[in-house]
Simulated assay, not measured.
Amino acid sequence: MWPDDGPALRLSVRALVLGSDPGWRPLLPGQRASATGKLLEPRGGDLRAAVVSVRDPPRLDGRPSWAQRAAGSLRAGLQRACVPLPDDVGGLLPGLVVGDTSRLDPALEEDFRATGMTHLNAVSGANVV
């Protein structure tokens, strides 16, 4: 159900937000944001309290901590440094280091999926703060 179909909820819990709007990209870990979306069940074995599917960009509530802003600056510098690299390396390096798979070659992404190694991109990026 989308927001018009049910009651509004205010949550302050760890949640996985599924959103494709470009407005989500600049958010940093720990940054507070508000969004309207469809509340889904958490995935099995997941420690998150909820999964939320959203259509629109977030509404920012304040700024991230200075440490997260500094880490974000370092991640952005790495992404800029990878721009001149050939596509295979230029797309893989940011994925392995900070979890940014936006330039990852689709064939290489499929190879990661086929071998069960997609966690290298997701986990590596999540560990860089």
Rank of each mutant, 00 (worst) to 15 (best):
L16A: 14
L40H: 08
E109W: 10
A15F: 12
L16M: 12
A76I: 08
D46G: 15
G6I: 14
L18Q: 07
R48E: 09
A49G: 15
V129P: 07
A35M: 08
G37Y: 06
T36V: 10
D100E: 08
R43P: 12
D88C: 10
D87P: 14
D21V: 03
R25V: 02
V97K: 01
D87G: 14
L93K: 03
N127M: 10
L27F: 06
D61E: 15
L18H: 07
V52C: 03
R69H: 04
S34V: 13
A114I: 10
L78M: 05
G116D: 08
Q68N: 07
R59F: 15
G90S: 07
G23Q: 01
R80P: 07
S65F: 00
R25Q: 06
M1S: 13
T101V: 05
G125Y: 00
G99W: 00
A114E: 11
S20W: 06
M1E: 13
V98I: 03
S20E: 09
A107G: 08
S20K: 06
P26T: 02
A107N: 05
L40Y: 08
L11P: 14
R59W: 14
G72V: 01
P64M: 04
L16R: 11
A35S: 05
R63Q: 11
L28P: 04
L47V: 15
G37I: 02
V54C: 06
Q79H: 08
P84T: 06
P57T: 03
G116I: 11
V51I: 06
Q68I: 00
D105R: 12
V17K: 04
D4R: 15
V123C: 12
P3K: 14
R80W: 07
P64K: 04
V52R: 02
S20M: 07
R69Y: 00
G44C: 09
D105N: 14
P84Y: 06
G95Q: 00
L93E: 07
G95T: 01
G37E: 02
V98M: 04
G30V: 00
D87A: 15
C82Y: 11
P29A: 05
L93N: 09
